[in-house]
């Protein structure tokens, strides 16, 4: 992936030198033309196109912001509710992610999801221990949310 970005920047510089006009607009034009070349030559790369991965990162960021706002609305409802209806629980969540940065990202995503905070990551980093604030109705929905998070992270990390 980084090789493709480097190649694209190199092609943009090449375009700048070819037209002997060293301005930002030339660089952008060269970058777009280089992107076109890389798109045309995609079958010679072993990994997938880096634009796919950039798109996946953008999708993950949007998901992150959406979940942050939802989490805050749910905390707001919980705190301002005159009757405290809590059923806190610690539960174990098995993850399929392997790399350290993926697990870090997943746990900060979970911490910002409605009603969950990651308390502990097991030593072999295969399970996350999550504190959930209201266990009866959330337990299943949370699993589905996390499957969508895990899928989004896997989409970023796959080569």
């Amino acid at each position: 992936m980084s090789f493709q970005i480097l190649l694209n920047v190199f092609l943009a510089f090449l375009w700048m030198f070819l037209s002997s006009n060293y301005s930002v607009s030339r660089f952008i034009i060269g970058y777009l033309l280089g992107l076109l070349c890389i798109l045309a030559m995609r079958r010679f790369f072993k990994s997938r196109l880096y634009t796919d991965r950039v798109w996946a990162v953008i999708k993950l960021t949007v998901l992150f912001i959406k979940e942050l706002i939802l989490a805050n609305v749910s905390v707001l409802k919980l705190v301002l509710n005159p009757k405290l209806e809590l059923q806190p629980a610690f539960f174990k969540y098995e993850t399929t992610l392997t790399q350290d940065w993926e697990i870090t990202l997943l746990s900060s995503l979970i911490t910002l999801t409605p009603g969950t905070v990651v308390v502990h990551v097991s030593d072999d980093s295969k399970a996350l221990f999550i504190h959930v604030i209201d266990s009866d109705d959330i337990d299943e929905t949370i699993d589905s949310i996390k499957n969508s998070f895990e899928k989004a992270i896997l989409e970023v990390s796959q080569t």
Binding site: N72, L76, V117, I133
Partner: peptide, 19 residues
């Protein structure tokens, strides 16, 4: 102020104050 223990308070503290 309202939530009963440390772990539930961590919910309020880590989400709401960040946003």
């Amino acid at each position: 102020y309202r939530l009963p223990d440390l772990y539930t308070r961590a919910h309020a503290a880590s989400k709401s104050s960040t946003l």
